[in-house]
Amino acid sequence: MHKTTWVELNSKALRHNAAIVRRLAPNAAILAMVKANGYGHGAEWVADQLHDLVNGFAVARLSEALSLRFAQANTRILLLGTELNADVMIECAVNKLDLVIHDINTAKLLATTKLPQPITVWLKMNTGMNRLGMSASEFTEAHRLLIAHHNINAIHHMSHFSDAETEDYTNTNRQHQQLTSLSKSLGSVPISMANSAAIIVHPKTHLDWVRPGIMLYGDDPSSTLAATNALQAVMTFKAKVLAVREVNLGDGVGYNRRWQANGKAIIATIAAGYADGYPRQAPDGTPLLINGERAVIAGRVSMDLLTADVSHLPSVKPGDIATLWGENLPAVEVGQHCNTISYELFTRITARVHREYLKE
């Protein structure tokens, strides 16, 4: 297939990263985050690669859960915090989806809804993130309401860390203590708290289920993993060089001539822009690779094109390959230049970008 802009998705790297999760949390079950289309990598592809390495998957929207259920008939799928009504609950029961219950009114609705078969629920406590989750009193009420209810197969307890990637462990320790203490007082049920950062930095928070997200896709949010546990980039974003031209002192490049040459320079025009998911806000100096050599953005990113200063790479020619992030150029580094994070870079890749799935 002819391609000018594409992402390469590496199954070996994905499985390597999942193996690191298992090595770091050997006693916990693994619930892999594949929401937002597998962080832009393709939820069904990720699940297909990892189904034998993890214990289930989690998504954020019912449509995601139903699509994944079609592809994965028997695996555990958890629908994370979203709007729930009786019809959605029934559909989840029909499709054997686990549900997160994050408010007491939804717990009460579940208790009065006639389901075709019982489901597993994950009760979510707000321990300081202050997005979704119940207060301690609501959490206790929901647990007692549902623990022996005929609609319920099993109950899990969960919360979400707000600061697990930071060097100050105060809030993480407090949140961990808050959930585990309350959970213990209600009886013995599986507990889940650890996201990617907590898996890496806070082993005592692993508990019964860990929930890796970004680390599966190659980013260490804590920046602490040693070389022996180094994560590997799963997505590499590539594009062809379309043109190479010389510019003179004072010449501008791109819209509004944001970048201007301070002498003779060579500019490469590359077939990727914000319509492909590359960040429009990328400033001059944002790194990329051409034929494996570093170059930098020069000029404003446009819809279909971006431009790079390759004055130090005089052999660059049309048809050469630029790497915008991925192998040998971490997405987190590009994100730092663009005042964003790898999560956003991954999930912004658009449908017109060709996907190439690399096999082991």
Rank of each mutant, 00 (worst) to 15 (best):
I214S: 05
N195F: 00
F139L: 10
G213M: 04
V234I: 14
T269R: 06
A308K: 06
D87W: 05
I191R: 08
A154M: 12
A298P: 09
L79Q: 10
V121N: 03
A272L: 05
C92I: 03
G299R: 00
V334H: 11
T205H: 09
S11I: 00
D251P: 11
V210Y: 06
W6T: 06
A272W: 01
I77D: 15
E333M: 05
I101T: 12
D98N: 09
N10A: 00
K317V: 07
F139V: 11
L24V: 00
I267Y: 01
H41A: 14
S311H: 05
R76G: 09
A73K: 12
P279S: 02
P26R: 11
I77C: 12
N85P: 12
M235A: 14
T323R: 05
Q178L: 15
V21T: 08
F161G: 14
A197K: 00
N171C: 06
G319P: 13
D320I: 03
G218Q: 02
L329V: 11
N195K: 00
S192A: 01
A227H: 07
M134T: 03
S222C: 01
L231P: 12
S311L: 07
E64M: 06
A36C: 09
A47H: 11
A154Y: 02
H102R: 15
N173G: 08
D219I: 12
T113M: 12
S311F: 10
G299C: 03
E64W: 12
L109G: 06
T166L: 08
E165F: 08
D284E: 11
H176E: 15
E91P: 04
V201P: 00
W45M: 08
L231F: 01
H150S: 11
I104V: 06
W259Q: 10
G81P: 08
Q175T: 00
G218R: 05
A233T: 01
I290A: 05
T269C: 06
R258L: 13
P190H: 03
D219N: 14
V21G: 07
L79S: 13
K184F: 13
M303A: 13
R294K: 13
H149S: 08
Q178G: 07
L99H: 10
G263D: 13
Q232Y: 04
G273T: 15
N74M: 04
L14G: 00
N339C: 14
A322C: 14
G277N: 02
E64R: 09
N153G: 02
I104G: 13
G299D: 01
H2F: 02
S315F: 05
T340D: 09
M134Q: 11
K35D: 06
L9Y: 01
A261K: 02
I20R: 02
